[in-house]
Amino acid sequence: MPLGISRGYEPGRTLLQLPITYIGAAHRARRGDEGSAQLASACEDMASNRPDLAQEKASDARAIFQKRGDLQSISDATRVLMVALADYESRAEALDIGEAHLAELRKTGQRAEEALVLQSLAEVAAFRCRGERRMQAVAWAEEAIGIQKELEDKVFEGYAHLALASALIQKGVKAHQRKHYQKAVKALKAALALFGAVPVPQEDEDTTSFVLARSGEARALHGLASACGRLEDFRTSVNRAREAAAIWQELGFRLEEALELEFLARLQLQLGQFKEGRKSGEEALKIFIGLKISIWQGVTLRTLVKALLRGKKIKEARKLVTRRQALFEEAKDVVGKAAALDATAEVLMAEGQAIEAANLLKEAMKLAKNTQMKDQGDLQ
Rank of each mutant, 00 (worst) to 15 (best):
A42P: 03
A42L: 04
A54C: 04
Q72C: 02
S36Q: 07
T21H: 13
A26Y: 03
Y22W: 10
V124T: 13
A92M: 15
I20T: 14
N49P: 06
S120C: 12
A61C: 09
E34D: 10
R30Q: 06
R31A: 02
G35M: 07
E93N: 06
I64M: 14
Q55P: 01
V83S: 00
E123Q: 11
V80Q: 01
E104C: 08
A94V: 00
E99S: 14
P19L: 06
A84M: 02
Y22L: 06
A115G: 10
M46L: 15
R111H: 11
D76R: 01
L81T: 02
I97T: 07
A58P: 08
A42Y: 02
E114A: 01
E114R: 04
L71Q: 14
A122Q: 04
R68S: 11
I20N: 13
S75K: 01
S41Q: 15
L116Q: 09
R91S: 15
S73D: 06
H27A: 05
G32I: 01
C43H: 08
A126E: 12
Q110N: 12
L95G: 04
K107G: 03
I23M: 03
A54G: 05
A58T: 08
R106D: 07
V124Y: 15
F65A: 07
Y22D: 10
Q110D: 13
A47I: 06
S120N: 11
A25Q: 12
L105S: 10
Y22R: 05
Q38C: 06
R28S: 08
V80E: 00
A126W: 11
G98N: 09
R111L: 14
S41D: 15
K107A: 10
H101M: 03
A26K: 09
A103E: 11
C43E: 10
S36N: 05
E99H: 10
T108Y: 01
D52K: 05
S59D: 08
A54V: 04
Y22I: 02
A77L: 04
S48D: 10
S59F: 10
Q110L: 14
R28Q: 07
A112D: 13
S75C: 03
K57M: 01
D76Y: 11
M82P: 02
A63I: 09
Q38V: 01
L39Y: 12
Y88M: 14
P19Y: 00
A94H: 04
C43S: 09
S73P: 00
Q110I: 11
A122E: 09
A26L: 03
A54T: 04
G32A: 01
Y22C: 06
R128N: 14
A63Y: 07
K107L: 09
R128L: 14
E93G: 03
